[in-house]
Simulated assay, not measured.
Amino acid sequence: MELHGIHVPLVTPFAEDGSVAADALEGLARDALAAGAAGLVALGTTGEPATLSEDERHTVVAVLAEVCRAYGAPLTVGAGGNDTRRSADALAALAGTADAALVTVPSFLRPGEAGALAHLAHLAERSPVPLVVYHIPYRTAQPLGAAALREVLATPNVAGLKYAPGGIDQDAVELLADGPAGVMAGDDVFLSPLLAMGASGGILASAHLATGRFVELADAWHKGDAAHARDLGRRLARLSAAAFAEPNPTVVKAVLHAQGRIPTPDVRLPLLPAAPGRVGPVLAALAALDD
């Protein structure tokens, strides 16, 4: 699997009765792929998987797998956890369902770089599908330096890296220095500079809201149209900042509901719905994309 382009980690929309709104989920998936998304992600953080029952998770994956098959697009499914043995078991269950699995660097335990690399290598060796390793140290509390991340990318059966360090630092510069394949921006507001530095694409929750424009941005950088990419990148960064003004995916869901694309803006505890004033700035940023 070659990881590139814009992948959308989909929200899990809820109906008025609190159940998963499968029809709305299918609509979001079709919209994203029709607008040029290279793939979809199920059960990422944006999809609130920790609050879903096992049956609900199966529903989400089944809906998105069917849409991806119809469009010939890859589906990546969030799986795994901190326990290496149980994580491997969870990955085994994805055989025949997913094209790749999104797995995080172990969180909370802080096993060190060596332990994290051993965990990921163990999973990669046993997974029936390629891994996309999610590096997000401000959530996991386990940073990995550029050399360790290069080792991750060189591991057999690792398709790529969702790179979300919370900024652009020396490790980012070193990681992208010679343009390794499969580095995907995971912090939405930093998409444009990471693409300029050689990232292959992005896995971005705010791409729900303007999928085609995010695809356009990635294409502009890859084609060397820096002037257009810089201008569009600034506009999309403002959109992403507004969409992440409160914990993800609360604002994204509120906007999708305001647009009539999902039946409710509901999230599940411990998340709380976005404040009413958060929708306006996102809608304004969307309008500004066409100014």
Rank of each mutant, 00 (worst) to 15 (best):
R150H: 15
Q170E: 14
A164I: 10
A159T: 00
E174P: 01
A177Q: 12
L149F: 06
A147W: 04
V158M: 04
P180R: 06
G145V: 07
P156V: 04
P165F: 13
I168W: 08
G179R: 14
G167R: 02
L161K: 00
D171K: 01
D178R: 14
A147D: 15
V152S: 03
P180D: 06
T155I: 04
A154V: 05
L176H: 03
A147I: 10
P180L: 05
K162R: 15
N157V: 04
L175E: 08
A177K: 12
A159W: 00
A164W: 02
D171S: 12
G145E: 09
V173F: 15
G145Q: 05
V173T: 13
A154C: 04
D178N: 13
L175T: 03
L161D: 01
P156W: 01
A148T: 12
L176M: 07
A147K: 14
G182N: 05
L176P: 08
V173K: 03
G160C: 00
E151A: 15
L149V: 05
G160Y: 00
A177Y: 07
A159P: 02
A146W: 04
P180G: 08
L161R: 01
K162Q: 11
E151H: 12
L153Q: 11
N157F: 06
A177T: 10
A159Q: 00
A172P: 05
A146L: 06
L149M: 10
D178C: 06
A147P: 08
L175M: 13
R150M: 01
A159I: 01
Y163M: 02
D171V: 02
A172S: 15
